[in-house]
């Protein structure tokens, strides 16, 4: 089936509207259930299911909006550049926190998924779940994983980190705003950064640097590290 331009435009408009409503609710209530990605996607899935449609009917609209992730990722250079002075002051904790965090989370997710007997074909997409979705898509493709699945895992990870990350950090007695920002950005990319920004400007700035750092670091080690782990974990 080849959806016409009008149907695509209607679905894009529906997505933008669902986002606008969810964002307004989130700015007001900040409850996990009105988190814009969670609520927006739930509304659209609901509408599609009620109309008896499948994801295939939505795919063209998805492609239109997903195209924007290219320029959006490039735009991430702007906050990083603006915070370059702060980057110099916190370079060591940032570099070590990001490298250790990113390496440990790749190992942990693959080990846990293997223990839980998750299907092997899913593992490459799962391994890159801590980087921001547009980059996770590309990394998964390079690792022979399924791009849309990688995006889904990245978004679930981002939502989980935004919802529960601050709580985990309190439990671990991480009180320093620089360290909290590093942890949230490394673990949960953009959505973690949004949560860090709610805590303090310092945490938010460190988090966006950590998010970019985690993406670069993960992209750099992925071609060697992920196949190595998979060989160790899978019989």
């Amino acid at each position: 089936m080849r959806p016409d331009a009008l149907a695509i435009a209607a679905l894009v408009l529906l997505t933008v509207s669902a986002y606008a409503v969810a964002r307004a609710l989130y700015l007001r209530y900040q409850h996990p259930l009105v988190q814009p990605v969670f609520l927006g996607a739930s509304v659209i899935i609901g509408v599609l299911l009620l109309a008896g449609r499948s994801f295939e009917d939505y795919r063209a609209a998805k492609d239109v909006l997903a195209w924007f992730l290219g320029p959006v990722t490039v735009a991430l250079a702007v906050p990083v550049y603006k915070q370059r002075a702060r980057l110099r002051a916190a370079a060591l904790p940032l570099a070590c926190g990001v490298a250790l965090g990113a390496a440990s989370t790749i190992s942990a997710v693959l080990a846990l998924a293997t223990l839980a007997h998750v299907d092997e074909s899913v593992l490459p997409a799962l391994a890159v779940k801590s980087v921001t979705a547009p980059i996770a898509i590309e990394l998964a493709r390079l690792q022979g994983g399924e791009p849309s699945l990688a995006a889904t895992f990245a978004i679930v990870t981002g939502t989980l980190g935004a919802m529960f990350g601050p709580m985990v950090l309190n439990r671990c007695r991480v009180t320093d705003p620089v360290a909290r920002g590093i942890a949230l950005g490394t673990a949960s990319h953009g959505q973690g950064t949004a949560a860090a920004l709610l805590e303090s400007e310092t945490a938010g700035a460190m988090s966006s640097l950590a998010m970019a750092g985690a993406a670069v670091f993960t992209a750099a080690i992925a071609p060697v590290y992920i196949p190595l782990l998979l060989r160790l974990l899978l019989p």
Binding site: T15, V16, A18, Y19, R23, P36, V37, F38, G40, A41, I44, I45, L48, F55, Y58, A61, K62, L65, A66, F68, L69, V72, A133, P134, I137, S148, L149, A151, T152, A154, I155, G158, G190, Q191, A194
Partner: peptide
């Protein structure tokens, strides 16, 4: 940023 993640989550 979140707007562009919604279609991926619909996936």
């Amino acid at each position: 940023l979140n707007l562009f993640f919604i279609p991926l989550a619909v996936g």
